[in-house]
Deep mutational scan, measured.
Amino acid sequence: NEEPLPEGWEIRYTREGVRYFVDHNTRTTTFKDPRNGKS
């Protein structure tokens, strides 16, 4: 039961299956979860 991502964020996966987060607001990507700060 995960809380929803902030507005404008999306979860994607690399070809290796590593989860990362896309911030469409700033057009950046990060491996850090914007909901809780954990990677």
Score class of each variant (00 low, 15 high):
Asn1Asp: 14
Asn1Gly: 13
Asn1Glu: 14
Asn1Met: 13
Glu2Arg: 10
Glu2Asn: 11
Glu2Thr: 10
Glu2Val: 10
Glu2Cys: 14
Glu2Gly: 10
Pro4Ile: 08
Pro4Gln: 10
Pro4Ala: 11
Pro4Trp: 07
Leu5Asp: 02
Leu5Ala: 03
Leu5Asn: 02
Pro6Lys: 06
Pro6Thr: 03
Pro6Gln: 04
Glu7Lys: 12
Gly8Cys: 07
Gly8Ser: 04
Trp9Leu: 02
Glu10Ile: 06
Glu10Gln: 08
Glu10Asn: 04
Glu10Lys: 04
Glu10Gly: 05
Ile11Leu: 11
Ile11Trp: 04
Ile11Thr: 07
Ile11Cys: 07
Arg12Glu: 06
Arg12Ile: 06
Arg12Leu: 10
Tyr13Ile: 07
Tyr13Ala: 04
Tyr13Trp: 12
Tyr13Phe: 10
Thr14Leu: 04
Thr14Val: 03
Thr14Phe: 02
Thr14Gln: 02
Thr14Trp: 03
Thr14Met: 04
Arg15Pro: 14
Arg15Gln: 13
Arg15Ser: 14
Arg15Met: 12
Arg15Ile: 13
Arg15Asn: 13
Arg15Asp: 13
Glu16Lys: 14
Glu16Gln: 13
Gly17Val: 01
Gly17Pro: 00
Gly17Thr: 02
Gly17Phe: 05
Val18Lys: 12
Arg19Lys: 12
Arg19Leu: 11
Tyr20Leu: 06
Tyr20His: 02
Tyr20Ile: 08
Phe21Gly: 00
Val22Ile: 14
Val22Ser: 03
Val22His: 09
Asp23Phe: 04
Asp23Gly: 01
Asp23Ala: 02
Asp23Pro: 00
His24Arg: 08
His24Glu: 05
His24Trp: 12
Asn25Val: 09
Asn25Gly: 07
Thr26Met: 06
Thr26Ala: 06
Thr26Asp: 04
Thr26Ile: 02
Arg27Val: 07
Arg27Asp: 14
Arg27Ser: 14
Arg27Cys: 15
Thr28Leu: 09
Thr29Gln: 12
Thr29Tyr: 15
Thr29Met: 14
Thr30Asn: 03
Thr30Ile: 04
Phe31His: 09
Phe31Cys: 09
Phe31Ala: 06
Phe31Lys: 07
Phe31Gly: 06
Lys32Thr: 12
Lys32Asn: 13
Lys32Leu: 12
Lys32Gln: 13
Lys32Ser: 10
Asp33Gly: 00
Asp33Pro: 03
Asp33Lys: 02
Asp33Ile: 01
Pro34Val: 01
Pro34Met: 00
Pro34Tyr: 01
Arg35Lys: 02
Asn36Trp: 11
Asn36Tyr: 12
Asn36Ile: 10
Asn36Gln: 11
Gly37Gln: 09
Gly37Asp: 15
Gly37Trp: 08
Lys38Ile: 15
Ser39Tyr: 15
Ser39Met: 12
Ser39Pro: 15
